[in-house]
């Protein structure tokens, strides 16, 4: 925590403006402690001795597989479905656009368990869409891996759409106009100009959606349940283990922490710093 000896020698410090006021330093320190202390204790309390054994156990591998699969498919769903929605919101002037934009943002603030209940209402066995689906195709969605993906997409999509829509708005319509004067169709302009220019927003949105999917618990457990091998993701397994064996739960949490920090760090070097 001690500053390097020659800090301030080459960089301009704020010391000439006077001492930082306590009224800002104290709450700032409390906030920092609140964010850092739990993570430090998690690292310290993790039973590192049997860490690798836990990592290789069947239930953990199954949960890791489900988590990796569902978060990857969720990001894919966001890219394929969310990008067009973001483009429509940013570029096409249609009736009810502002209402739709507000509706898209609702899942951001919706408690995940409420999201789960809403999904059951729509896609459950007796739900509005679910019963129709069951009668026509015999398929039921709840308590399947598909349900996990749908729940994750429901909560993650808004992060993606808002990020991409923001990037599209920032890039502006100017280059679309130039592309049109050069004879490009809107689809050609989208592929060759609009999307490449919005790429930082696409990447940032995908990372946000992926992170949201990785940690998703409430909507998943409500809509898809907690069945090992099909719908039990890492967060669901941690929740189960916390009631049976807290030490194992800490190990699992550590695994999830390492995975998410690792992926974020990798992406940060690749993409996020340049945007």
């Amino acid at each position: 925590m001690t500053p390097p000896p020659d800090a301030g020698a080459t960089t301009l410090s704020g010391s000439h403006l006077g001492r930082p006021p306590l009224v800002l330093v104290v709450p700032g320190a409390v906030a920092a402690a609140l964010l850092v202390v739990p993570l430090v204790t998690l690292v310290l309390d993790t039973p590192w001795g049997d860490f690798l054994d836990q990592l290789g156990s069947a239930p953990v591998l199954a949960a890791l597989r489900i988590t990796a699969l569902t978060s990857a498919v969720t990001v894919l769903a966001c890219l394929v479905l969310g990008t067009p929605l973001a483009w429509l919101l940013a570029r096409v002037d249609f009736a009810g656009r502002s209402v739709l934009r507000a509706a898209v943002a609702v899942p951001l603030v919706l408690p995940p368990v409420v999201a789960g209940v809403a999904l059951v209402t729509a896609l459950g066995r007796n739900g509005v869409v679910g019963s129709l689906l069951r009668e026509t195709t015999g398929l039921t969605v709840p308590f399947t891996t598909t349900a996990v993906v749908i729940a994750h997409t429901f909560v993650a999509m808004p992060f993606y759409v808002l990020s991409v829509e923001g990037a599209l708005r920032t890039a502006g319509e100017r280059y679309d106009v130039v592309a049109a004067t050069l004879g490009a169709t809107r689809w050609h302009a989208f592929r060759r100009v609009t999307l490449p220019l919005a790429m930082p927003g696409v990447v940032a949105g995908a990372v946000l959606a992926w992170a949201r999917s990785l940690g998703e618990f409430g909507a998943t457990i409500t809509f898809a349940g907690n069945f090992p091998g099909t719908t039990q993701t890492m967060p669901s397994l941690i929740y189960t283990q916390l009631q049976a064996d807290p030490a194992v739960a800490r190990t699992l949490s550590m695994i999830l922490l390492l995975v998410s920090v690792g992926v974020l760090a990798g992406l940060r070097n690749r993409w996020l710093t340049t945007s």
Binding site: R174, Y175, V177, V178, A179, A180, T181, L182, G183, A184, T185, R192, V193, P196, L197
Partner: peptide, 28 residues
């Protein structure tokens, strides 16, 4: 717009920033 045979040159060029000079000219 795209069916009008126009060529536009603006004060601030408006070249596509993510394409090379060659790709910009080839775009149309």
């Amino acid at each position: 717009v795209r069916h009008r045979r126009v060529g536009l040159v603006f004060q601030d060029q408006s070249l596509f920033p993510h394409l090379s000079a060659l790709e910009n000219v080839a775009f149309g």
